[in-house]
């Protein structure tokens, strides 16, 4: 029996879809069977980020309305041997085409076959959000170090805490710009976590590579050399229950003293 994790944020454009794609990829790299669900009906784009757009035959609404079986609608990611699947959203209907109860049954069915179901939630707190949260066991809230994103994250956390079947949500702070945070022009990680007072599950630095990779339909998590990729892989390991220390945000300073400290294992 697998676990369903919803990725949500309230505000749009903070990186829910990117996070969903990369967490799914990173979990599949760990050898888990993963199914991604795009619940952003009418504005789907998880398939684009995953590079699976032209393989879609059926979608979420087709499944819910009984036009096809679940496994017919699932799009297999060829980069993984039977590990990563995507259930795409419909592009022609809207959010009201699905009811929370139907989503719940769908997720329950998928949980039999997969280790992790990752649900990409649309922005906002209306029908789409309610559908996305309906079947989830865990929740990940994505925010960026901006006041508006943090405010919406706060609202979403408040709503998630009211859901009885969902564990306390975990936080990802996305798009961190190290130099701005250092200068105090951006909210810093401690400030955000203290304000929202939920557990931090990972931080992801702002990285041009992420956008590049998304445009190529290849999640950044496939590229082992990027900082963002390592961040997503670390989050995946934390989801699996490993304890992985947070990435150091600062660029390595090359002073002799810090090298000596590093040699002795002193962390700055």
């Amino acid at each position: 029996m697998g676990e369903a994790i919803v990725v949500t944020s309230g505000k749009g454009g903070v990186g829910k879809t990117t996070t969903t794609a990369n967490l799914g990829t990173a979990l599949a790299l760990q050898g888990k069977r993963v199914c991604l669900i795009d619940t952003d009906i009418g504005l789907r784009n998880l398939d684009v980020v995953m590079g699976l757009e032209n393989r879609i035959i059926y979608d979420l609404v087709d499944v819910v309305e009984g036009r096809c079986k679940i496994h017919q609608a699932l799009v297999k990611d060829k980069r993984f041997e039977d590990l990563l699947f995507l259930l795409p959203a419909a592009q022609t209907s809207d959010k009201s085409a699905v009811a929370p109860e139907q989503m719940k049954n769908l997720v329950m069915e998928l949980k039999q076959d997969y280790d992790y179901i990752i649900i990409d939630c649309p922005a906002g707190i209306e029908q789409g959000y309610k559908n996305a949260v309906a079947g989830a066991d865990r929740a990940i809230v994505v925010t960026t170090p901006e006041v508006s994103a943090v405010r919406d994250a706060d609202r979403i956390i408040g709503l998630l805490e009211k859901e009885k079947n969902i564990e306390p949500p975990k936080l990802i702070i996305n798009r961190i710009r190290t130099h701005m945070m250092k200068n105090g022009d951006m909210l810093d990680v401690d400030e955000i976590t203290a304000h929202l007072s939920i557990d931090l599950i990972g931080i992801v630095a702002d990285d041009d590579e992420v956008i590049k990779a998304s445009n190529h339909g290849e999640p950044i998590a496939l590229n082992p050399n990027s900082k963002a990729s390592i961040a997503y892989r670390n989050i995946a390991r934390r989801i699996l229950g490993e304890s992985v220390p947070l990435q150091q945000l600062e660029e390595e300073s090359k002073s002799v003293f810090s090298k000596i400290k590093k040699f002795f294992g002193v962390r700055s």
Partner: peptide, 23 residues
């Protein structure tokens, strides 16, 4: 008390926790 939440009591309120902006 998070953004969008409203807590309402008829008497005195002793809140052990924060009231976040928007709450």
């Amino acid at each position: 008390i998070r953004s969008g939440q409203v807590l309402d009591v008829p008497g005195d309120l002793l809140l052990i926790g924060d009231v976040n902006p928007g709450g």
